[in-house]
Design a protein around this nucleic acid. Structure first.
Length: 421
DNA sequence: TCTGGGGTCCTAGGACCC
DNA sequence: TCTGGGGTCCTAGGACCC
């Protein structure tokens, strides 16, 4: 039988900021999403003030002011760097690990059943804290869904000291009875209210319900959760870091935009980002989609549209995709609307080495493209993003996002620490 | 005034074929 | 006059996750 541990960083983005701001210990702290839109991370002290996950900043400004909540714009370069340090530390504790998200990893504890897994997990927790300054919680169980649940309870109950092992049947039963279905990994809002209307309210009740009924209402994913609650492991550890199957770049504008040339700049920038990511994972794309939308929260004429282009042959070079992207944008652009957001994504990805050239592509031309992109990526890697970029991205991006409370790049750009400008 | 961004998987339904 | 049904492929949209 398998054993999984889920290691989850506590209030990750806030914890990253606090590493470099010891004065914030035990203080309420929040981190905002891009564009300073919503609260996406909160310390326990901030949660206690009633600041909910995902709530728009303007709705909580009064709490922030009244209780002196320290607020940061998001600083993803910092979080990605801290994440790497945490993951690197975790690797020392298990031969098999799946990096599940920026702040979570599943570890396999298979074959370690005779150890004291609680003690071992405390050792992991303490080591990560010592090496990185990031506090983590650890849940242990026989399936991923149960390990997630263990983690949820480890965070919630102070007396557990951030570690809970649910391989023990008595503890497991107590845990299942104490967990509402809405807190189960894989049960979202829609499914939770369906279950509630079937009078299934706790994880324990779901575990003991009729699989056929669950499958009828919640389909395959729901049935899988039910089996995982019964300690039948269906969701396996995914250790190999294969590339993404789809790559997206999108952003809200700092202010409404209606001019085609400004949209073209934004779409150019997104296409550039997407192609960089494609090349970094050695993939080429067959399909490219451009979309744009107005602000759905506003009482104004609304418009959303997208256009997908099938490339004649799969590619990852910026100027090839850019040609298609700007053409796609022109085909869906409509005058007279105030746009809030646009984006570009690619799908139908395949490894570069399997790249199929179409009948009319010249291998020589293709090689030239490849070398050009290699050179651009190298220069930008050495000298900073967008040192070289296509003119269509625009020099001055007036529509760019707001980010007024960003912390310095503590770990990646040391000169900012010295206030060198 | 101010409401994020980047992913995955699954299902239903249409188009098409024989 | 009688007007099928099964299979496959593709896409859009839903639900969920962090």
């Amino acid at each position: 039988m398998s054993v999984f541990a889920l290691v989850d960083c506590n209030s990750f983005f806030c914890s990253c900021e606090k590493v470099f701001r010891p004065d914030l210990k035990n203080k309420p702290v929040i981190v905002l999403s891009n564009n300073d839109g919503c609260a996406v991370a909160r310390t326990n002290e901030a949660k206690a003030l009633g600041i909910k996950m995902g709530v728009p900043y303007f709705k909580i400004k009064h709490i922030v002011k009244a209780h002196k909540v320290t607020t940061f714009s998001s600083n993803f370069a910092l979080y990605a760097d801290m994440s790497q340090r945490v993951m690197q530390t975790l690797r020392e504790f298990s031969p098999q690990m799946e990096v599940y998200s920026i702040d979570e990893a599943f570890l396999s504890f298979n074959g370690m059943e005779r150890m004291d897994l609680t003690k071992y997990s405390h050792e992991i927790k303490n080591t990560v804290y010592r090496y990185t300054g990031i506090p983590v919680s650890i849940g242990i169980a026989r399936t991923k869904v149960l390990a997630k649940m263990a983690n949820y309870l480890a965070k919630k109950h102070n007396n557990l000291n951030n570690v809970l092992d649910l391989t023990n049947p008595t503890l497991l039963e107590r845990a299942l009875k104490a967990t509402p279905v809405s807190e189960i990994w894989g049960v979202g809002q829609k499914s939770a209210s369906k279950l509630n209307s079937l009078n299934i309210n706790t994880a324990w009740e779901l575990k003991n319900s009729n699989p056929k009924v669950i499958k009828k209402h919640l389909h395959l994913p729901g049935e899988r959760v039910l089996r995982e609650l019964n300690e039948e492991s269906c969701i396996h550890l995914d250790c190999d870091e294969v590339g993404r199957k789809q790559i997206l770049s999108s952003r809200s504008f700092g202010r409404p935009v209606n001019a085609l040339d400004e949209l073209t700049q934004a779409v150019s920038m997104h296409t550039t980002r997407v192609c960089e990511k494609l090349r970094r994972q050695n993939s080429v794309a067959q399909k490219l989609t451009v979309f744009l939308q107005t602000n759905p929260h506003k009482n104004e004429p609304q418009y959303y549209n997208s256009k997908t282009v099938h490339l004649t042959s799969s590619a990852n070079s910026t100027n090839i995709l850019l040609k298609n992207a700007s053409q796609a944008l022109r085909s869906i652009y409509k005058k007279g609307y105030l746009f809030k957001k646009c984006g570009v994504y690619v799908s139908d990805l395949s490894p570069l080495k399997q790249q199929q050239l179409s009948l009319f592509d010249s291998p020589k031309q293709n090689e030239k493209q490849k070398n050009l992109m290699l050179a651009v990526d190298k220069i930008n890697a050495q000298n900073g993003r967008d040192t070289i970029k296509l003119a269509s991205c625009g020099l001055e991006q007036k529509w760019g996002m707001r980010s007024t409370m960003r912390s310095p790049a503590f770990t990646t750009k040391w000169h900012e620490l010295l206030n060198v400008t």
